[in-house]
Nucleic acid binder design. Structure first.
Length: 892
RNA sequence: GGGCGCGUAGCUCAGUUGGUUAGAGCGCCUGCUUCACACGCAGGAGGUCACAGGUUCGAGUCCUGUCGCGCCCACCA
């Protein structure tokens, strides 16, 4: 039972953060709540593989608090395998590693590359939470990962085939961001936009059969080789007469139409815009609207294609120089202006991305989104905090079709086969050996893989055995709660809802809780590129896992961001140490009193033990049990409504403010050497054990450690604190009388200390004092006098009633007067103090009187407010009067 | 351009249907090594709740406007 003076987290806290750092799969937990299931997930987002993110610590903390809370309230736990979401990120890491050796994945070939990725995953994945092993749940760890080879593939394929047959999946043209170095398409997220100083070149396009020409402005003159139209605004009088005519594309001598389109902004440049459908996303869309042909003039290596005539084979920037020179030579370069523009660069290589037209697979999202909107509006899924609900709706209304094909080599292959003979597509559950259209055996599988979000979207049901109708699926779908960050709301949450409604006919979860963002001390969003990330492992090493967790939770007010500072972490570490030292105090005194480790039989709510001789319960015990009951109420309510900061703050206030500051101090007077396990010990250990359980979701490791030490050998209590019951409030445990009496004691002690500090007295020196109490029972048995004397360092004479004369150093309230007999010199310090108090009281009295004197106000005020206002006014008046008396006594 | 959020003590932040003299942690000042804890104990100072109007008996809280800060989305020929 010996504890070190200072709590050492390293010794007792498993560093589960390490697990997150190395794991490359979802970890998910599921639980049931009110007969309905709840689940929570943690995923490393694709851009942070290989490191841990503070945001995950937060997310995990909130999830783990809820999960432990549920578990402690008696709901069964189910651990679900994660999907292979981070496979894509792993692939990127492998690709980067290969690049260092000068190898590209194309050199390696598909199979060898996949093997490499597997190797990496085996090496870095798969560490399992140590704390979970301690909990003793039955977990089939072989099912902790869904990979490309097991059940998920079947689910993914089933969904793909079904959606395809319903016409919800189609192939179409799409503008991708192409990285010419990596030879791959990038998602919008992988493109970083940068403002650069560029130029705006104005080029003359001669109108056919006329001496006129249109001047178009462009930042990328080399793309003009692929122009297929020039657009003017339908309201632009300057050019309207040219509508229907054509221009001759300079350098290429191609004839292209002049079209009307809103995209041409009369205010910008010349008001004319060239249309290059194959190399600009906006132009691409305009081309769709006007049925314009696409001409690819830049290839995947960013070189000009054979369509580029004389420029064919040139690099895109060399081509630009040549094009400009040639235009200039022909006198077609109108003018050049400096222009700031933003260019998209590859996050991975820094190369300027090339917009490229390609054929991709799409999910038709409109019909799916409609179901999501309907379900959300019916309240079947609620997003909280509710401002996200609106944002979510806006997005669902404006949703575009979802491109699901990726030119990657890791992931679920698209189950579609192209026929080389008839060019038909065969989509089937079983791998086909011939084309379903022409019967040819000359077919090959599509080389693309599915977007990871496609399989992730199936997570809520695919992990439960879908499409089989398993008992788990029956029980755990739909789930109750999803905790996640807003950055993933659209990618993942929306898609889980779409797929859930489509495949299961119901929403996947009832509530989505959106948490805040973790920021650094300068309020900057943490990002790897900025390099201002806080490494959670360093934080954990320095402050401990529990301290890190409660720091995050204390800052996690819904809808706000979390600023992480060393000061906050330091104070949390101090709190962990406070818990540790409170335990140390108990253990040392148990030894002194001859008390063995003990804890009560398990119950949700406990009543204090009475003195076996008198049959009475000590006042401090009645009080602390009542306080514990109160906090059990507020903490449960806070967690239930996702107010994690409040839960953390409440357990802190109870443990430090009530338990340590008052209860332990009061109990010190009750310990007797060699007493054995008497009612005092039973009460303090009961409260302490309950406090540990109350704290557990927020401070899991230190509470587990201490709980295990307190747990007697051979106890029939659960093996772990996280399987013990969570404290619950019970109206019968409320003890208003005890709270009032201890409250009065606290205010008397506070007043004496304050008075003595004002007088500049040595706080340790015991001095004589007279206390006149009104309406406060000071019974001999309750030990209040002893407590008062000890905690205020006085030798008090307590009398019922009013002080006969307020002389000396006085502090008064409506319920007591304190008189300290001190020298006249010490009294002067008092005067300012009391006068200042009077000013504030007068203000409060005037305010209350004004409100209470008006019939109109009284009639509009709710009765309970009037009630408190009245009693407050009485109190202010009494106090003011007492102060006045004291002041005149001081004057004498 | 569209949308969202923030501005409360020196600092970082709470403050849930409007209702006591507006709170916490850190920092600061004073006193204390008291046999759990100086990562501590006791006491204290410090705020016209960004500004200006409005609604209300009553506003940190609701409405309008102004100023300052931040985020997201879109666009950028």
């Amino acid at each position: 039972m010996q504890l070190e003076k200072v709590y050492d987290p390293q010794q007792f806290e498993p560093r589960w953060a390490e697990v997150w750092r190395s794991s490359d799969f979802f970890l998910a937990t599921a639980d049931t709540h009110d007969q309905r299931p709840v689940f929570s997930l943690v995923i490393p987002p694709p851009n942070v593989t290989g490191s841990l993110h503070m945001g995950h610590m937060l997310e995990h903390s909130e999830i783990d608090v809820t999960t432990r809370w549920f578990r402690m309230r008696g709901y069964n736990t189910l651990w679900l395998p994660g999907t292979d979401h981070a496979g894509i990120a792993t692939q990127m890491v492998v690709e980067r590693e290969l690049a260092k050796q000068g190898i590209s994945r194309h050199d390696l070939g598909r199979e060898a590359f996949e093997a490499k990725v597997w190797e990496y995953k085996e090496l870095h994945g798969g560490t399992i939470l140590r704390q979970m092993a301690r909990i003793g749940d039955s977990v089939d760890w072989s099912r902790t990962r869904f990979t490309l080879d097991d059940g998920l593939s079947h689910a993914v394929r089933t969904v793909f085939v079904n959606l395809y047959r319903k016409g919800l999946i189609y192939r179409g043209p799409y503008m991708v961001n192409w990285d010419p170095t990596l030879q791959t398409a990038l998602s919008d997220l992988e493109v970083v936009h940068e403002k650069v100083e560029g130029k705006l070149w104005h080029v003359r396009y001669p109108v056919k059969g006329s001496a006129e020409y249109l001047v178009v402005a462009t930042t990328r003159p080399e793309t003009m080789l692929g122009d297929t139209a020039v657009a003017i605004n339908p309201g632009d009088e300057r050019y309207l007469h040219l509508h229907g005519r054509t221009v001759v594309l300079p350098l290429m001598d191609r004839e292209i139409p002049i079209i009307l389109d809103e995209m041409a902004d009369p205010e910008f440049g010349t008001g004319c815009v060239k249309i290059t459908p194959a190399h600009d996303p906006n132009d691409f869309e305009a081309a769709q609207r006007h049925n314009l042909p696409l001409i690819r003039v830049i290839d995947e290596h960013a070189k000009i294609t054979s369509e580029g005539g004389p420029y064919s084979g040139l690099d895109r920037y060399d081509a630009r120089e040549r094009v400009l020179a040639d235009l200039d030579a022909k006198g077609l370069l109108d003018r050049t202006e400096p222009h700031e523009l933003s260019v998209g660069k590859s996050q991975r290589t820094g190369v300027i991305v090339e917009p490229m037209v390609s054929t991709q697979w799409f999910v038709r999202t409109k019909p799916l989104a409609e179901k999501v909107i309907e379900a959300s509006q019916a309240g079947r899924t609620v997003i909280t905090p509710d401002n996200w609900q609106k944002i979510f709706f806006d997005w669902m209304y404006n949703i575009r079709d979802w491109c699901i094909s990726r030119q990657l080599w890791w992931g679920h292959r698209i189950p579609a086969w192209h026929c080389h003979d008839c060019h038909g597509i065969t989509v089937a559950m079983e791998d086909p050996d011939k084309c379903e259209h022409c019967g040819s055996a000359n077919i090959a599988q599509d080389s693309d893989v599915l977007d990871t979000w496609f399989s992730s979207a199936l997570w809520p049901f695919s992990t439960l055995g879908w499409p089989e109708k398993t008992p788990a699926l029956e029980r755990f779908y739909p789930n109750t709660l999803l905790i996640t960050g807003f950055d993933i709301l659209f990618f993942w949450v929306a898609r889980m809802m779409m797929m859930g409604l489509e495949c299961m006919g119901d929403v996947p979860f009832r509530t989505v809780y959106i948490h805040g963002l973790v920021r650094d001390a300068e309020r900057q969003k943490m990002s790897k590129t900025k390099g201002n990330t806080v490494d959670p492992l360093e934080t954990i090493d320095k402050y401990g896992t529990d301290a890190t967790r409660i720091t995050l939770l204390l800052g996690a007010a819904p809808g706000t961001d979390i600023v992480l500072t060393d000061e906050r972490l330091t104070s949390s570490r101090a709190f962990a140490n406070k818990i540790w030292n409170a335990a140390r105090f108990l253990f040392l005194n148990m030894e002194r009193c001859g008390v063995e480790p003990w804890m009560p039989e398990e119950q949700a709510c406990y009543a204090p033990h009475p003195d076996p001789v008198t049959g009475e319960v000590p006042l401090e015990d009645r009080w602390i049990f009542s306080r514990l009951n109160y906090y059990a109420g507020t903490v449960n309510k806070a967690i239930d409504s996702y107010r994690y900061h409040e839960a953390a703050q409440q357990v802190w206030a109870f443990f430090w403010g009530d338990f340590c500051d008052w209860y332990v101090e009061l109990k010190k007077l009750r310990f007797e050497e060699g007493s054995g396990l008497n009612h005092h010990w039973k009460n303090i250990l009961t409260v302490f054990e309950s406090a540990l359980r109350l704290l557990h979701p927020v401070m899991p490791f230190i509470t587990e450690e201490l709980w295990q030490r307190l747990r007697p050998e051979g106890s029939n209590r659960s093996a772990s604190i996280c399987l013990a019951r969570y404290p619950e409030p019970d109206p019968s445990a409320e003890d208003a009388t005890a709270e009032a009496e201890v409250g009065a004691l606290q205010s008397i002690i506070g007043a004496v200390r304050n008075l003595r500090a004002d007088l500049g007295q040595d706080p340790k020196k015991t001095i004589d004092a007279e206390i006149y109490a009104r309406g406060i029972a000071f019974t001999a048995a309750s030990g209040q006098l002893e407590a008062l004397n000890k905690l205020a360092s006085i030798s008090a004479k307590v009398t019922e009633g009013n002080a006969p004369e307020l002389r000396g150093a006085v502090r008064s309230t409506p319920s007591f007067d304190i008189v300290l007999l001190v020298s006249a010199a010490e009294l002067e310090a008092q005067r300012n103090r009391v006068e200042k108090d009077q000013l504030q009281l007068l203000k409060a009295i005037a305010n209350a009187e004004r409100q209470l004197s008006s019939e109109e106000i009284l009639s509009k005020m709710p009765p309970h407010v009037v009630e408190t206002l009245r009693s407050k006014l009485d109190e202010y008046r009494a106090k003011h009067e007492k102060n006045q008396e004291a002041l005149s006594a001081l004057a004498r």
